[in-house]
C-alpha cells in the first residue's frame, strides 16, 4: 500500500498590509509529515496553527508554495489528469458534515459521483453493489432508505458517516481527516473515530488525523505532530508526546486540556534542555498579546516554573 510523504511543505499567503506592500503570512513553514499504511498520524494544533492548510495542500485544494508530496516515493504531476489520479489515492473527510454535503442532492447522488468519476463501477448493477458495500462499511443501515435521503434528513453522525463513505468511494490509500468529529455531539465522537480506526485496519489505510483534541489524538494515533503558528514544535510516538511533553508549548497544551481523572501536568520549561531533538526558539514561542498580559502570569501562578520561564522568554525577547 501507500506511504504518503510530504516534505518541507510551505505555504505563504499574501495579505494586504498597510501601504502598497503586500505582507506575507507564513501559514505553513517547513512542515514534513510521513504517514505509513495502517498507521494514523495525528496533527495537533490550535486554530490558526496551519493544520487545515496542510490538509488542503495534501488533497490539492491549495497549492503549496514549496515542498514535495510523494506517494510511495512517486511524485505525481500537476495536470488535470494527474491530479485526478492523485485524488483517487488521497481522499479527505471534511470537518463539518453539515456543510460538506450538498443540501440539494441525495445521498445516493453524492456517493455515486466519485464512483463514476474514478471509474470504479462500469454498470448499474455494479454501482448498486458498490453503494451498498460502502454504506455497510460505514455502518449505515438501512442502506436503501438512507441512500434516498437528503443530508438534512440525517443526524450529524449519519452525515459524517456518509462523508466518510464518499471519501472511501474512490478506494483511496491515504485518508486525510480534518477535525472529523469536532462538529459532532460529544456522545458520538468516539464512535466515528472508532469507525475510522476500523476502516484503517480493514483497508490498510494511511490516515492523517487532524485535530485540536489531544486526548483523542493520543488514543487514536501512533504518532503525534504538534504544530504552532505554522511550524512543528514537537513530534514523536503518541504516548511519549502526551505523557512526557518536552516543548514548553506542548506542555502548556497538556496542562490546559481538561483531564479530571489525572493529576495536572506540571510545566517544566527546562525539560527541552535534556532533549536536543526538540528545538525551542524564542521566536517559536513568540509571546502574543494573549499570554503576555499580566493575567497570564497570575493565572498560572500555581506553577512557579512557568513564571520563571515567561520571565526568561520575555528577557530574551527584549534583548
Amino acid at each position: 500500500m501507500t506511504t504518503l510523504e510530504a516534505l518541507h511543505l510551505r505555504k505563504d499567503y499574501r495579505v494586504r498590509g498597510s501601504g502598497w506592500r503586500a505582507a506575507r503570512l507564513q501559514a505553513v513553514d517547513d512542515v514534513s509529515i510521513i504517514v505509513r499504511p495502517g498507521e494514523t498520524v495525528a496533527l495537533v494544533g490550535e486554530s490558526g496553527s496551519g493544520k487545515s492548510t496542510i490538509a488542503k495542500m495534501l488533497v490539492r485544494l491549495v497549492d503549496a508554495t514549496s515542498g514535495t508530496v510523494t506517494l510511495d516515493g512517486e511524485t505525481i504531476g500537476q495536470g488535470r489528469r494527474a491530479t485526478k489520479r492523485y485524488r483517487s489515492r488521497v481522499q479527505m473527510v471534511f470537518q463539518d458534515p453539515f456543510s460538506s454535503l450538498n443540501p440539494a442532492l441525495t445521498i445516493r447522488h453524492q456517493l455515486t459521483r466519485p464512483l463514476r468519476i474514478h471509474g470504479i463501477v462500469h454498470s448499474a448493477a455494479e454501482e448498486e453493489r458498490e453503494l451498498l458495500r460502502l454504506m455497510e462499511s460505514v455502518n449505515l443501515s438501512p442502506a436503501k432508505t438512507i441512500l434516498a435521503k437528503y443530508p438534512h434528513e440525517l443526524s450529524g453522525g449519519q452525515r459524517q458517516r456518509v462523508a466518510i463513505a464518499r471519501a472511501l468511494a474512490p478506494r483511496p490509500e491515504v485518508l486525510i481527516a480534518d477535525e472529523p468529529v469536532s462538529m459532532l455531539d460529544v456522545s458520538i465522537r468516539l464512535e466515528i473515530l472508532q469507525l475510522l480506526n476500523d476502516l484503517k485496519l480493514e483497508r490498510n489505510l494511511a490516515v492523517l488525523y487532524i485535530t485540536h483534541d489531544l486526548a483523542t489524538a493520543r488514543h487514536f494515533s501512533s504518532q503525534i505532530v504538534v504544530m504552532r503558528s505554522g511550524r512543528v514544535v514537537e513530534r514523536g510516538p503518541s504516548d511519549a508526546v502526551i505523557l512526557n511533553p518536552v516543548h514548553p508549548y506542548t506542555q502548556f497544551l497538556v496542562r490546559a486540556a481538561p483531564d479530571p481523572k489525572s493529576a495536572p501536568w506540571i510545566v517544566d520549561p527546562n525539560r527541552h534542555l535534556g532533549h536536543p531533538e526538540v528545538v525551542v526558539s524564542t521566536e517559536n514561542l513568540e509571546l502574543t498579546e494573549e499570554n503576555t498580559s499580566v493575567h497570564w502570569v497570575r493565572s498560572w501562578d500555581d506553577d512557579a516554573a512557568v513564571n520563571t520561564m515567561l520571565a526568561s522568554l520575555a528577557s530574551a525577547q527584549t534583548s
Binding site: S187, L190, A215, T216, V254, S262, W265
Partner: peptide, 10 residues
Amino acid sequence: LLNSFPSLRG
C-alpha cells in the same frame, strides 16, 4: 457521557 471523554493521560 463520561465515557465520551477519553482521559488525556489515562
